[in-house]
């Protein structure tokens, strides 16, 4: 009887070959029709990015610049198209943000440029692109990643916006800040809110959900930090805008109380203070300004130091400020006038105290992967069986 000897498979070099006419099928199955929740894509975070890169590597290997250009253009246009179609779905946007970043990191890691090869294994160095320098395409991908990031932030804000005032100020459990309810009622707030209302718990649950989705998609930790900083800013800005324009809040003692509470919060955990303080700064200034106004620090000094942080609407708050007892001073008319004059030439913002639409500039620090391309298994459910392993 003949003995069946299994033939040793030729070493897989971590490249994927496809026929030119299959390019549209490739981006359709891998980008346009891919479900971010599918089991297949969650096995290896960034899998679509790795597959695209392995296809690109083969086009580079056969020295076909037209195929390289065409694949990059199709992939980028497909990502834009899916984001146009499902741009209000956090999961989709997060998924393509992390995959676009991973693709960008791959283009750097395997560029052959020494500055990006420091953490590569010898095998990864062997897998570097051999014919083309794609530095310009990296720039385009980076621009795309910025657009996706901004879309992610907008998407997140749309979900958070309706929760913030209700959760932070009306059903909150931090005592002594909002003054909405009589003291006796405060502790009765349960974490299960009535229909249409939100609690601090529901905001935290929502933030947790954003975080775990991003982790599941393999989003770079440095990028997650930037998203969190932005979330923190939005929640702080919307809360503060609402809070400080409440009549009962516009008093010296309340302003001091906020300033003091925030100081305590940041002191509670010194490790986060340095990082958080930068983000908190805009939140701290309005009460500080009000307090400063009341203790007669010249308005020019305050404005010159901090003009970046507050809009002309600060004047509204200063005008609302009312002494609650005989020991409190009224904000001097001169102080308000000076501030008004100094801010007159500023472009009028529709925002109140803080610009809730502000988006911090984003960066995508290089984050190489230790994953070896030749070990990647492609699940059948991705429907890319027409790709040949090379």
């Amino acid at each position: 009887h003949p003995v069946n000897i299994p033939r040793r498979e030729k070493d897989f070099q971590g490249m994927l070959e496809y026929k030119k006419e299959d390019e549209l099928k490739l981006v359709k199955n891998l980008i346009l029709e891919l479900k971010p929740r599918g089991v297949a894509v969650n096995l290896i975070p960034g899998l679509p990015a790795y597959i695209l890169f392995m296809c690109l590597r083969h086009a580079d290997y056969i020295n076909d610049d037209q195929k390289v250009r065409s694949l990059l253009t199709s992939a980028i246009n497909s990502i834009k198209k899916i984001l146009k179609k499902r741009g209000d779905d956090f999961e989709t946007v997060s998924f393509w943000l992390s995959n676009t970043c991973r693709f960008l990191h791959c283009l750097k890691q395997y560029s052959g440029d020494e500055q990006f090869m420091k953490h590569n294994t010898p095998k990864q160095n062997d897998h570097c692109l051999s014919n083309f320098d794609l530095a310009e395409y990296r720039q385009v991908l980076s621009d795309l990643a910025i657009q996706i990031y901004q879309q992610l932030i907008k998407c997140m804000e749309n979900i958070l916006q309706p929760m913030i005032v209700s959760g932070m100020l009306e059903h909150e459990t931090i005592q002594g800040v909002s003054g909405v309810k009589p003291t006796g009622l405060r502790k009765r707030t349960s974490s299960i809110a009535d229909e249409g209302t939100y609690t601090l718990d529901s905001i935290i649950r929502q933030l947790n959900s954003f975080h775990s989705i991003m982790c599941q998609h393999g989003t770079d930790p440095e990028l997650i930090k930037q998203v969190v900083k932005q979330q923190f800013y939005v929640i702080g800005a919307v809360t503060l805008n609402n809070l400080l324009l409440r009549k009962d809040m516009c008093s010296w003692s309340k302003g001091m109380q906020i300033r003091y509470s925030v100081t305590l919060e940041t002191r509670a955990d010194l490790r986060i203070t340095a990082r958080v303080c930068g983000a908190l700064k805009p939140v701290l200034w309005p009460p500080e300004l009000i307090v400063a106004g009341l203790v007669f620090i010249p308005a020019e000094v305050i404005i010159a130091k901090n003009h970046f942080f507050f809009s002309v609407q600060i004047v509204k708050v200063l005008n609302l400020y009312t002494p609650v007892n005989a020991f409190e001073e009224r904000v001097s008319v001169l102080f308000i006038r000076t501030i008004q004059t100094r801010l007159r030439d500023r472009k009028e913002s529709p925002q109140l105290l803080m610009d809730t639409k502000l988006i911090y500039p984003v960066t995508f620090p290089f984050n190489p992967s230790s994953l070896a391309l030749e070990t990647i298994q492609i699940p059948g459910s991705l429907n890319v069986g027409f790709l040949t392993r090379v």
Partner: peptide
């Protein structure tokens, strides 16, 4: 150390220019 390989720089269009090379024309047209 071997000399680093010379790679050909591929000129890239901008994002907006890329969009004009729409690969999905058939689907998008009414």
């Amino acid at each position: 150390r071997p000399p680093s390989r010379i790679r050909v720089l591929l000129k890239a269009p901008t994002l907006a220019e890329m969009e004009e090379m729409n690969i999905f024309e058939d689907e998008d047209s009414p």
